[in-house]
Amino acid sequence: MIQITDLHKKFGKNEVLKGLDLTIEPGRIYAILGPNGSGKTTLIKSILGMVLPDKGKIEVLGKPIAKGWKYRKQIDYLPQIANFPGNLKVRELIKMIKDLRNDEGNEELLITTFSLQPHLDKKLSNLSGGTKQKVNLVLAFMFNSQLLILDEPNTGLDPNALIKLKELISKERAKGKTLLITSHVMQFVEEVADEIVYLLEGKIYFKGTIADLKNVTNQQNVEHAIAVLTKTEQDG
């Protein structure tokens, strides 16, 4: 699905990715974890072509993405902070994205799921953080792309919406889609992810299933296991 080889990226003097290699198999849910500033968002943005790598190669669906843009049609992306043009109404935004992608979105069900009907004619600048995140989720889930990239999907959601989100994710899994998710909430990760990719200092420090992670670190709990991973690195 995605093949990344020797990816390097520097922002000024700050070397964020230092030769990262990663293979994403189709039909699985990957959780990309790591401490703040470990390069998770840079990695995701590189896959989307928003950040241009200094060195290395990224292939999506078997084709290199350098200078390409059509492959983004195969990717649905949920950005970390829902920054939308404030003067648009929710309804207009959804329509605009459908028009820009040239795709018939399937937003009706999602709008009902997240009870967004009363907000459809409000301007985006007047929405609360949680509601914005729900709109963000509708935009990401309304298309039927093979690959879904969710950057911190649970930010700002109330428990009810969080349950709905998990249901959505498991529906997508059932359709055989590939998901990349970043999150800082370990309980959420444990519930939804098949595999963990742990980033540290711009490289992949650990990659494997949750069971592997627990075995390697001798921990029963993912949160502690991750803490141990981080700690061993710092001690070493």
Partner: peptide, 16 residues
């Protein structure tokens, strides 16, 4: 002012 709009567009299948 359209920084957000730009970022939204960059993730879509549109040429930069």
């Amino acid at each position: 002012n359209s920084k957000e709009f730009t970022e939204l567009l960059l993730a879509q299948p549109i040429k930069r």
